[in-house]
Simulated assay, not measured.
Amino acid sequence: MVMDKPREVLVIGGNRYFGKRLITRLLAAGDRVTVLNRGSSAPPPGAVHLVADRDDETSLRSALGSRTFDVVVDQVCYTPRQAAVARRVFTGRTRRYVMTSTVEVYEYEDSLAPVRETDVDPLGVAVDLGLPWHEAEFLDAHYGEGKRQAEAVFAAEPAFPYVAVRVAHVLGGDDDFTGRLEHYASRIRSGEPIAVPAVNRPATYIHVEEIADFLFWTAGQTFTGPVNAASHGRLTTQDLCDAIAAHLPYGETVLRETEIGTVSPFSFRRFYGMDNSRAVGLGYVFGRARDWLAGAVAETLGAAAPVTSGKGD
């Protein structure tokens, strides 16, 4: 029997959370996987490891040498500068480029209807390479804008077929490094108030395993442009708190409304719901957020099963 030639896949970054799950899936499928990062951590066994600073074009070209790839999955493209470097370096080196983007590209949209990919057309986004994208504080404060402009760079001069996967808020896994669910758990345990907006909007989410599956699936497809990746259904802050409280032996959920100032993670003054119909129409089957929420909380908080509080219904 004649076997198909294994794909050559490069993953930039991606050594933690859903990135490492993606690498595991690629290796299991028989792909030849190369992982490029700054050397802070080694990839899973079976992957080739390249060390380079992706912000340094000379370093990146040197590390890659003459290598070419069927697919590049860029997990850590946060700025238009990084996108511009990648576009120059990978022109002629790849047949497909998958950039991991974010729901935060819709941060300027204010709609109660789930946002579609066409609501933020990267061709209409102005790019400013002169902004201080190299400064961590600036980048952190402009995360969504950085992703928007990075998408715009790839779209304006498409040197290769590209996809921007706009990822919903990710939950689940025992290696969630964000601490966002633990923020709620610690306050519920102590009864400390949880700051939420006076009008607190729901959002769409995706499980850590599901986004790894989606990125793996996307790498093997031929469609291009932006695509939303989100489980079906919306969750509110109260939904998250209820799921967390069910896994704690004691505590109380106290939501405190605030008009101004910082609110708790996953509490939103605007609607962060994404329409996933494009991906569904292309053939991807998403799960339902309410079906995996309890398990995601258990994974992250290390709880084996919901614990009853002893209180009456």
Rank of each mutant, 00 (worst) to 15 (best):
E257K: 11
F271S: 11
T258R: 13
T253R: 13
H247P: 05
N276S: 03
A279K: 07
G251W: 14
S264Y: 07
G273A: 13
R288M: 00
R290Y: 05
Q238L: 15
V263K: 09
E257W: 01
A279V: 04
V285C: 11
S277G: 02
N276Q: 10
R270V: 13
V280A: 10
M274L: 10
A279I: 06
L248F: 12
W292Q: 06
Y284D: 00
M274E: 00
G281C: 09
G283V: 05
F286M: 02
T253K: 06
E259Y: 11
P265K: 11
Y272P: 00
T237A: 14
Y272W: 15
P249L: 12
C241D: 05
R269L: 01
R270Y: 07
L240P: 08
L282M: 01
F286R: 03
F268R: 04
A243Q: 03
S277K: 04
G287Y: 07
I244N: 00
M274Q: 02
A246Y: 01
V254G: 05
S277Q: 06
Y272C: 11
D275E: 08
T262I: 10
F286E: 00
G287F: 04
E252G: 15
G281I: 13
S267G: 10
E257T: 10
R270I: 15
G251A: 09
W292F: 09
A245N: 04
A279R: 02
M274N: 00
V263Q: 08
S277V: 02
Q238A: 15
T237G: 09
M274A: 07
G251L: 13
G251D: 12
Y284G: 01
G281L: 08
P265G: 11
F286C: 01
W292T: 09
H247F: 06
L240C: 08
R288W: 03
L248T: 07
S264T: 10
D242P: 08
R269V: 08
S277R: 10
P265T: 13
F286V: 04
D275L: 10
A246C: 11
P249A: 04
E252S: 15
G283E: 04
F286I: 03
G261K: 11
M274T: 03
D275G: 03
D242L: 03
S277Y: 02
